[in-house]
Simulated scan of single mutants.
Amino acid sequence: MPRNRTRPDHWRQRERRDKILVVIDAEETERQYLEQFKGKSSPTIPHVKIVTKNKDPLTVVNHAIRLFDSGDFDEAWCVFDEDDYKDGGTFQKAIATAGKRLRLAVSCPCFELWLLLHFEECGSELNQKEARRRLRKHLPDYDKSALRCEDFQPHQADAIRRARTLDAGHKTNHQNPSTGVWRLVERLSGTGSQY
């Protein structure tokens, strides 16, 4: 008698995982931090493609739009900092251009704020130099070009809580200090909803 070659139902009913594009503005810190979310396998964790466009925020957003328009992704995120771009208008143009098509994980003033929130509250305005100085109190050998994710993973829930608190305390988006990286981290780890 021939064997039944049909697969069990649970094999055929694999859940479809979303494909998420993340375009970042820097090759070092942001990429190293976000790489920890790639390659994890779970129905709730999306496939992630990280692309670096080491340029100003508007260029990052326009690049993300071009890639997203290819139809290969279910959603697209841009990760960039306020840093040196707020006064030149590029920062606000990038936010306006992203509109509702792209999701933003913007840090004001810098990505180091997100890293700092893993260890402490941060309620007053700061600059990149101050953020790095305070981060080195917790990680004396902090080097943005050699980030160790294991330093941050145990404190991720604290960083998310602190970033949410900052958001709730601002009347408008993208005020210093603030970071939207928490939304992206929740999405990539499968713990947050689609935003």
Rank of each mutant, 00 (worst) to 15 (best):
A76L: 04
T90M: 06
A105V: 07
D83M: 07
K93E: 12
F111N: 06
L58Y: 02
T44M: 05
R133M: 04
F73T: 00
K100D: 15
V22Q: 03
K38F: 00
W114Q: 08
Q32V: 04
R133V: 10
F91C: 10
Q36R: 15
Q92D: 10
F91A: 00
V79C: 10
A64D: 05
P46D: 05
M1Q: 13
Q13E: 13
W11F: 12
T59V: 07
P46G: 09
S145E: 15
K53G: 03
D56E: 12
R5W: 13
T97W: 02
T90E: 12
L113M: 11
H138A: 10
H10A: 06
C108I: 08
K129I: 13
L58E: 01
K55Q: 13
L139F: 11
R17D: 07
R132Q: 05
L21G: 03
L135H: 09
T6F: 14
R7I: 08
H138G: 10
F73Q: 01
N54R: 14
I95A: 00
R3K: 14
K38N: 07
H10D: 13
L113T: 10
A131D: 13
T90K: 13
K53F: 11
N127E: 09
R132M: 10
K86P: 06
I50M: 10
A26W: 01
R7P: 06
G88C: 11
K38H: 09
E27W: 03
L58P: 01
K129D: 12
S145N: 15
A94R: 00
V51R: 09
V60L: 03
N127T: 11
T29Q: 06
V106D: 02
A64V: 07
E30N: 08
F68L: 08
K144M: 13
R3T: 04
W114N: 04
K53H: 15
V60N: 03
A96V: 12
V48E: 01
K100C: 04
R5Q: 14
D141Y: 06
P8N: 06
T59F: 08
H118C: 02
T44S: 15
I24S: 02
D25F: 03
E35I: 05
R101E: 15
S70H: 08
V60K: 03
A64Q: 08
E82M: 05
R7H: 09
P57E: 05
I65H: 12
P57L: 07
E120L: 07
Q13Y: 14
K55A: 13
W11G: 00
S124T: 14
N4S: 04
K53M: 11
V60F: 06
T97I: 00
G99M: 08
L21W: 00
E75D: 14
V22A: 02
Y33A: 02
I65L: 15
Y85M: 07
C110E: 09
H63Q: 14
V48N: 03
K53W: 09
L67K: 10
D72T: 00
F119Y: 15
K100P: 12
K19L: 06
T29N: 01
R3L: 11
T44A: 14
R7S: 11
P57R: 00
L117H: 05
P57I: 02
T6G: 04
K129L: 15
T6I: 09
R103W: 05
C110K: 05
R12G: 05
R14W: 08
R133G: 02
P46C: 07
K144W: 14
E112S: 11
D25I: 01
V61Y: 07
T97S: 07
D18L: 15
Y33P: 04
Y33N: 07
W11V: 15
